[in-house]
Computed example of a mutant assay.
Amino acid sequence: MGLGSMMLLSCLSAQIAEYNAKSIAAVRKRASFDLSCAPEKLNIIELGRDNDDLLTTLGVVGCEKKATYVNLGNRSGWALDVGERKADAPAPQ
């Protein structure tokens, strides 16, 4: 691999990391509202990535509740999938 290819790969990796960090911050803010829970009390769990290594699904747990957020794609943002439920409740069938 040439130096140019390595630099391009490094730049791309940095962009992916930045995008994923911004996604986590956006989901934390949204989940804080949806779950009526302070942002610092929320744990974000990575549930899925696409072939480009971008986050596609995030789980959020906090204040005895949990929720799943899905990426809508094309930089449209994140949406609550199904709705919040108690942290110990089974997943809907």
Rank of each mutant, 00 (worst) to 15 (best):
D88S: 12
L8T: 14
K86Y: 08
A21W: 09
D53W: 05
Y19T: 13
D81V: 11
N74T: 09
T56Q: 13
T57D: 08
T68Y: 06
A89G: 01
A67P: 00
L9T: 04
S76M: 13
K41Q: 09
T57H: 10
E84I: 12
Q15A: 12
A17E: 13
N71I: 03
R28T: 14
T56F: 04
T57I: 14
C63S: 02
V27Y: 01
D88L: 02
S5G: 14
A67M: 06
L58D: 00
E40F: 14
A91D: 05
V61K: 09
K29D: 07
K22C: 08
A87V: 08
E64D: 12
E84K: 12
E40N: 15
V70Y: 04
K65N: 09
G4F: 14
R30A: 15
M1H: 05
N74E: 12
V70T: 07
G59K: 04
N74W: 10
W78F: 05
I45Y: 03
C11T: 11
T57C: 08
E40G: 11
R30Q: 14
E46D: 07
D53M: 13
S32H: 04
E84R: 13
L35D: 00
R75G: 10
E18A: 15
A38Q: 10
L47S: 01
L42Q: 02
S36M: 07
K22Y: 09
L8P: 01
R49D: 02
C63T: 00
L9G: 02
L12C: 10
V70L: 11
I24W: 02
L35H: 02
G48K: 12
N43R: 13
A87G: 01
V61D: 00
L54S: 06
T57E: 08
D88C: 03
N51H: 10
T68K: 08
K66I: 04
K29S: 11
L47I: 03
E18G: 07
A14E: 05
L8D: 09
S10Q: 10
V61N: 02
C37A: 07
L58A: 04
K22T: 07
T57S: 08
L58E: 02
N43E: 11
